[in-house]
Structure formats: C-alpha cells, structure tokens
Design a protein around this nucleic acid. Structure first.
Length: 855
RNA sequence: GCGAGAGUGGCGGAACUGGCAGACGCGCUGGACUUAGGAUCCAGUGGGUGAAAGCCCUUGGGGGUUCGACUCCCCCCUCUCGCACCA
C-alpha cells in the first residue's frame, strides 16, 4: 500500500480535539430554528465496537452533519444500553462485578467512538444502568400498575435454559433465544406483564401512517400484531344444559374468522390444555387416555413443532357438542393443532373450508360439508376462497362477506356470541430472573399483599453485593439486605420483588431522556421533549423490527396517555441498515472473517473507514466488506489531499469566480455562501467544468435528501475529483490562469463541502488549509447554481428501429422538426434507412430520436 | 405453506416518472515516471467477431405490451429475509 499517505492520524486527532474543546456539537433548544433529531440505536456496551457499529454511526453522522450544514438545530446524542446478560455472564465467568465490567466497556467503546469523529453532543450521554436513569422507569412502572397496564400473572412462558430467564414472545426466534440461540422451553411461572395488547389496534393503525418507515418493517409489525376479525360463540355440550332449558350450562366458546362456514362444522376441537377438558371427561378410563395424550403432546411439542408436515394428532372425547346453527350433534376432540394461547383455545372445525381441519377430518374419517360453491375448475382439498354460500341454511346464496355479517348478526340475536377481534400479539412479559437489570419497584407484604414502593423511596437501587452463580433463580432473592424491607403501606415486614425488568424497557424511552439527560425532576423535561420529539430520523438494524421498535412505540403511547409526552409515535422515519458481511457470511469470530474497527482506523483512518462503509452499498442493503475496496477509499482521499496540497499556491491566490470573498449570510447559526454570480466570458472548458461542479452539487444533495443513496453521492464526488484532475491538465494552456485558478478553487471547496459529512476530518483540515478560519460545519451546504448548469448543446442519440446508429450534437431547444431532419440526414443513419420506408420518427427532446422503418 | 424483497460484467454496485445498460469503485491489462515500486499519473477493460470502421449478442428463463423494456404485465426458476398449525 501507499507509503506517502496523507497524515490522517494527526489530522483526525487534531479535529476531534477541537470539536470537543469547543463543544461544537453541543445543542440547546432554539425555537427560532428548525430542529432535527438524528438518532442511531445506542449500543450494548459489549466492550468493543464492531463493523456494524461503524456503519450505523457513519450513516447517522452523515445525516447529522449534513442537516447541521443545512442550518438545522441538530440533536445527535449517544449513550449506552447498559443493563443485560453479558455483564452478568462475565461476572460469573471472570469474577468481575457487572457494574465494573460495564463501565469499563463503556470507557473503551466511548474512546473507540471518539476516534470515529462523530458529531455527538457528548454532554447528553446516557447510561441506562445508572439509578438516576432507571428511577424514572420505576416510577412509570408504578403508574402503569395503577392503570392496569402493568400486572402480574402466572402463565406458561418461554424459558431460556441457558440465560436462566423468561423471554417475551418477541424474543423467541424460531423456537430459539434471540440472544444466545438456545432452544426455548415452556414453564409455568409468575411474572410481570405490560399490557401492550391494549394498544394493539393503535399500534396497527399507525403502521399505515408512519410513511417514513420501511415497508418491510411495517409488514413485520403488522404480522406480529396479527389482527383477525371474526366471531366468538358458544357450542353447548350435548346433554349438559344447566336446568333442562335451552340455555347452555356447559358450553365451549370458540373463535372463528369464518362464521359464514358454521353450517359446515362437522366436529369441534379443544386445545389439550383447555381447562374445560377435565369437566368433560366421564370416567376414569377416559381421564387416563386424556392424561396420556396430554403427556405425549407436552413431551414432543418442542421438536415436533418444527417438523415439516407434522401429522395432526387428536383424541376423541366421549362428550359431544351441538352446532347452534343447525342443531347437529357433532363429535368433540382434543388435538395438538389447536393452541391454548390463541383465541379461546377451542375451534369449530370446518374441513370443507380449512385445510388443517380437512387433514384432520380425513385422518379421523369425519364428514366434510362444502359451504362455499367451488370454482368450476377447482381440484384442491379445502377451499378457502370466496364464493357463494351453499348447504348453509339461511346463509345460502350470499357471498362469503355478506354471510359473515349475517352469521354474526344471527349469533348476536340468539345471544350465543358476538363479533370478536383477536390478536396474535401477547402482552409483553418483562420479568427477568436475572440480576443486572432495573429492579421492579414492588414489595410483597403478608398483610397488604403486593404493594408498590412509595415514590419518594425511588429509585429502588440494585444492590451491589450479590452472589451470582448462573444456576437459576433470581439472584436478588439471595440478597437479604435487598429482599427484606418494610411495607410502604402498613410498615410491617415485607419482601421485595426479586425479578428485574427486561432491558428492552430501558431502550423504550432513552430517546426521551436525551432531550434533557440530567433533568432531576422527572423522566424528562416537558419543554425539551416537546421541542425535540419525535426523532426525525432513526437508524438501526432490521433485527429490531418487532422487538425494540415495537416496544418503544408502545411505551411512548403509554407515556402519552399518562400525559407526559404529546407525540403519538417516537420515530418519524426509520432507516434500517443492512448487515456487514465478509466472504459471504456475517462477521463472526468462528468464521474468522472479523474486521476490527480499531485496526481499520489505525491503518487507514476514520475518514476512510467511514467513506468505505458508506460507499460499498446503499445503507439498507447488506454490505460486502472488501479490504481492497477500503484501499480504494484511502486512495481517493489521498487524491483529494494531494490535489489541494499540491496546488495550494494557485488555490490560495484566487477567490471564487464571480465575486471576491463572498459575503456570509446567517442561516440558523450557519454562514451561507450565496450562489455565484453567473460567469461571463469564460472559456468553453471552464464553462463545462463549472457545470460539472454544480451538477455534482445537485446530484449529491438529491442522493442524500431523496433516498439515502450515499453510495451514488460518493460516486458523484469521485467523478468531480476526476474532473478536477482532468481540468487541471486540460486547462493549462487553454484557459486563462485567473479563471483556471478560480474554477479550481470553486471545485475544490465544493468537493470539501460535499465530502464533509462523510469524511469530516480531512475536509476540515483542507478547508483550513485553504485559508478558512471557521469550521467547515459552520458553513452552509453548497447550492447548485442553475445558471451554471444550463447548456447550449446536448447530445442526442439516433436510433434506427431501436438500435443506436449515431449521435448528434444539437442546440438544446432545437425544434423537433429540425432534430428529425438532422437525424434522417445523418451519414451513419443513411445506410440503415435507405431502401426502407420510414414509418415514423419518435423524438424525445434532448435525449433521443428513434426512426422506425419498414421494408 | 403464507408474506416481503432480490436476481445486471471477474467482484461491490449504477441506471430519475419506460429512452445511450454497466456510472463510481475494486480487480485485471498496457503505458508513463522511476534505482525500484505493491506509490502516483495516463489509457483500456460485458461477451462474440473483425486488421479496423463496424456488426451481432447481453440485465435469472420464457411469453406479452410498446417505436423503444433492467424498468410495465403474465408464467416459471433460483436465492435471501420474516412468520410458521394464529382457527
């Protein structure tokens, strides 16, 4: 590699120091300026940053600095998602206290991030394991408790045997723990829940309103919430009416999205764990069969669940139920394909219109009734499409949609059921049987039961001295000083809750804390939050599509309903960046394809690392890391450096074309250079070059502004630099030296300005070298000069029958007829037209002519 | 199975509302400067054919719409991601 690289080490250290010493990126609320809240997902302090961090923070900094140059008041903070399992595991393995481990890691990572030269307002740094932070979420917990939004229940939960804790549904991916990839098992356990289901509809509705979010993420969230509209009604158990009347004594409540198919119900199914099963069994023998079936299902469920084409297993009960629609008595089963966790845990089975029921019916020899007329060419099994109702009593002849409504109306009229909406979304289980998390601020008193801690006693501080074994059970339970307390209500003896909160609770509101990070009077200062919120641009990995991003949306709505914030949604726009890949695989130690950002920055500098991260791929796509590509980035920056340093004398002698020392105007604290006056009497080379300069400004601005296409923005800057080199050569004897110097100056400054958000150090340095006293980031983003971009002539492609045969250079506004005539007369076109009849000529102004011929 | 997205040179990737396919970078080839260069600069670089001008082919495959298709429509293939018995 290069031996004469620009001195990036000194430059980067120098500017990082200057930005910090002058607190250049410190911001305060300023109602007179437009604000821009730019936020990247804060990191877990694992100890070292990785290339994924480099990428996301490079993207964020580009946007922040760009907006800064556009005159926005930019909030760009950084902090630490500091609670979590790895700290605890480190403690168990190496005997370091999680707090020490965490804070050391934070120091390391902060130092690493500083070397990237990102425009953070470090005065706003937030660390979630600090009691002054989690105090406020304890307070909110109590508020939620008061409103029934936090509650405790015993339930079957996801248990990670490796992490020794409960996981929320969102934290199980394909039956495995999201963090450690262990297979998740089931457990019945008491725990705390946040009632996210109360917001299911609102979360869903906003999915369509958050237009700044990627479609993909919104679809994932919609699917996760999983709203389905249908009906719920009772199937009376035959011979079990309460008092010999029609009113059902014992009945099975079922949920269906297809009430229109009720006449096709030929059996019904309960989940094996359904609580009613016990009261339905008639004798000891059946009880035994049921117990055996349940045991079998429980045993195999975990592995079987993942098996493809799993056979549906079921057991017929002696009890039968009555289909209220047609009074038919039908068999009742328990079967593994019905889940207790969804709907009512029981279904009406309509094999004619449901493939699962069809499979089961075939296996158990149950009748199949079609209730929707099949299309003429139908050859499938269960038919799930729309159509006209048949075999359905009073619904016959209706469309499926009408029949659904009528069936529900009928159920309501008969007082048998109602319309019902079900969600796949479950309440968020937030209890963790771990130490390194925020304590849940409640106590258990023998006399008063569960009692929230008094607000004035908050925060409930996580005790320092705790034995961590990793062997299971909440570690806090063994901390007698912590557990034993007094009841906030009666003053009697009480025990503290020993579970801690899911760390996703901290990340559900950190963006609010950044608005007023040291505020001691509450979670955040109202005025500050009202000024800064919502986040204008959020940037982070797709892996949080339904985790953090859903929780944060929910939590924000809770805070809104508690009267604390005004916004409905925390993040106006989301950019979800792709992974960093190398050699076709995600970087990992086991694959040996890890690139260490420290090494990278040491060898090439932060500017190069950032440049390549942004250049190699558009942000939403995976980035294929390539060491040679990085060298290309370094080469480009060297090229910029060499040009400026090598032409310093010439560049310094001249101010910009059009005006000497353009006056500065102030836009929101940023001094703007007004557009250049149009040039008069300059050489053709000079005009062409200046057009390239201003076209580049437009391209780069559009690429950033329109769709985050930073890779093409960088390509455009590279083209401009190439053009600078070319012009430098070409202009030597053809352009007057004053004009040449002025244009080179304008081009150079433009390059530095456009490159500034991407590579802030080298550009600051060269900007200063050119004689500027003030930081580049106190100068405005350049504005493309429309006059410079006008052209007199354009190249028009001439096609004959769709194939390019020639090119014409013509006046921009040449009349269509002239263009057509010139094209037909062209030497290279002639041979292709002669002997053939010209059928028509298509002229696309300023672009192309297509001559269509016929033999 | 359902849902979403993607298939373009040796590689990463460009191509706005249909209008010169392959920008920019990597790699490679040649040249210049050099004691030397793995530095730098210049030139070339989709495939085929040709001495050259040129011609033909080319955006996963096959149809279609159109003067014109990477772009729009239909069918198929492959890959990635998400959900996965959600009634």
């Amino acid at each position: 590699m290069s031996t004469d690289r620009y001195p990036f080490r000194e430059i980067e250290a120098k500017w990082q120091r200057i930005w910090e010493d002058t607190k250049q990126f410190r911001v305060t609320e300023d109602p007179s300026r437009p604000k821009f809240y730019c936020l990247e997902m804060f990191p877990y302090p694992s100890g070292r940053i990785h290339m994924g961090h480099v990428r996301v923070y490079a993207i964020g900094d580009l946007l922040a600095r760009y907006k800064w140059m556009r005159g926005f008041n930019v909030l760009h903070p950084m902090g630490w998602d500091a609670f979590g399992m790895p700290a605890e595991n480190a403690a168990i393995e190496h005997g370091v206290h999680p707090a020490i481990w965490t804070y050391e890691n934070i120091d390391n990572m902060r130092a690493q991030l500083r070397k990237m030269g990102i425009s953070y307002d470090w005065d706003r740094e937030v660390t979630t394991c600090d009691p002054s932070y989690y105090k406020w979420e304890q307070l909110i917990f109590i508020r939620m408790l008061e409103r029934g939004l936090a509650y405790r229940k015993r339930s079957t939960v996801n248990w990670c045997p490796s992490c020794q804790t409960v996981l929320a549904n969102e934290q199980v991916e394909g039956g495995r723990c999201w963090r450690c990839d262990s297979e998740v098992t089931k457990r019945d356990i008491d725990g705390w829940y946040f009632k996210i289901t109360a917001y299911a509809d609102e979360l869903l509705a906003w999915c369509d309103r958050l237009t700044g979010w990627p479609e993909r993420v919104m679809i994932m969230q919609k699917n996760w919430i999983g709203r389905s509209d249908g009906a719920e009604f009772d199937l009376p158990v035959a011979g079990r009416s309460a008092d010999g009347t029609d009113r059902p004594g014992l009945a099975i409540r079922v949920f269906t999205t297809r009430p229109d198919t009720a006449f096709g119900m030929t059996y019904a199914v309960l989940a094996p764990e359904h609580p009613l099963v016990d009261s339905l069994v008639t004798d000891a023998a059946e009880r035994e069969r049921v117990a055996a079936f349940r045991a079998e299902v429980a045993k195999e469920s975990e592995q079987e669940r993942l098996a493809e084409d799993r056979e549906k297993r079921g057991l017929r009960l002696s009890a039968t139920v009555v289909n209220p629609f047609n009074r038919a008595e039908i068999p009742l089963f328990i079967a593994d394909y019905v889940l207790m966790t969804y709907g009512t845990g029981a279904i009406m089975a309509v094999p004619g219109e449901d493939q699962r029921d069809w499979d089961f019916a075939k296996k158990h020899g149950l009748p199949i009734i079609e209730t929707v007329k099949r299309p003429p060419d139908w050859t499938g099994e269960a038919y799930t499409g729309d159509g006209v109702k048949i075999n359905s009593g009073f619904l016959d002849g209706l469309t499926t949609a009408d029949a659904k409504r009528q069936a529900i109306d009928w159920l309501v009229a008969q007082r048998l059921g109602t319309a019902k909406v079900n969600y796949r979304l479950r309440d968020w289980g937030i209890s963790r049987q771990r130490y390194w998390g925020a304590p849940i601020p409640v106590v258990y008193c023998d006399a008063c039961g569960m009692v929230p801690e008094k607000e004035e006693n908050l925060p409930v501080i996580l005790p320092r001295d705790v034995q961590l074994s990793g062997k299971g059970g909440s570690p806090l339970a063994a901390a007698a000083n912590f557990v034993n307390t007094t009841c906030p209500k009666c003053g009697g003896r009480a025990r503290r809750e020993t579970d801690t909160m899911d760390t996703f609770v901290e990340s559900s509101w950190y963006f609010l804390r950044y608005c007023s990070p040291t505020y001691a009077g509450g979670m955040f200062e109202r005025a500050a939050a009202e000024y800064w919120m919502p986040v204008d641009q959020y940037i982070g990995g797709i892996e949080h599509a339904v985790l953090h991003l859903l929780y944060a949306r929910f939590y924000t709505k809770v805070l809104r309903d508690l009267g604390l914030v005004k916004v409905d949604e925390p993040f106006n726009a989301l950019l979800s960046q792709g992974m960093v890949i190398k050699d076709g695989a995600k970087m990992s130690k086991s694959k040996g394809n890890v690139v260490d950002p420290d090494d990278l920055i040491r060898t090439f500098g932060a500017d190069t690392a950032r440049l390549f991260s942004l250049f190699a791929a558009p942000p939403e796509k995976d980035l294929d890391w390539n060491d040679h590509g990085v060298e290309g980035g370094a080469r480009f920056l060297n090229r910029v450096w060499r040009f400026v340093v090598g032409h310093l004398e010439e560049l310094r002698t001249q101010s910009r074309v059009g005006s000497h020392h353009p006056p500065s105007i102030e836009i929101g604290g940023v001094s703007a250079t007004p557009p250049m006056a149009p040039l008069s009497a300059v050489s053709p080379e000079g005009r062409a070059f200046r057009r390239v300069i201003h076209e580049t400004i437009k391209r780069v601005t559009d690429d950033i502004e329109r769709d985050f296409h930073f890779n093409t923005a960088i390509a455009a800057i590279m083209e401009l630099v190439n053009a600078v080199y070319a012009f430098e050569q070409a202009s030597l004897d053809r352009v007057a030296s004053a004009e040449r110097a002025a244009l080179l100056r304008e081009a150079t400054e433009t390059v530095l300005q456009l490159l500034a958000p991407i590579c802030p150090h080298i550009t600051e340095e060269l900007w200063q070298t050119l004689g500027h006293r003030e930081s580049l980031f106190r100068h405005a983003w350049p504005v493309a000069d429309a006059a410079a971009m006008t052209r007199d002539e354009v190249t028009v492609v001439v096609q004959v029958d769709g194939k390019v045969r020639s090119r014409l250079t013509i006046e921009v506004n040449a009349p269509q007829a002239d263009v057509e005539r010139l094209a037909l007369a062209d030497d290279k076109v002639q041979p292709w037209v002669s002997g053939r009849a010209v059928e028509k000529v298509v002229v696309v102004p300023r672009r192309l002519v297509n001559i269509v011929t016929r033999a």
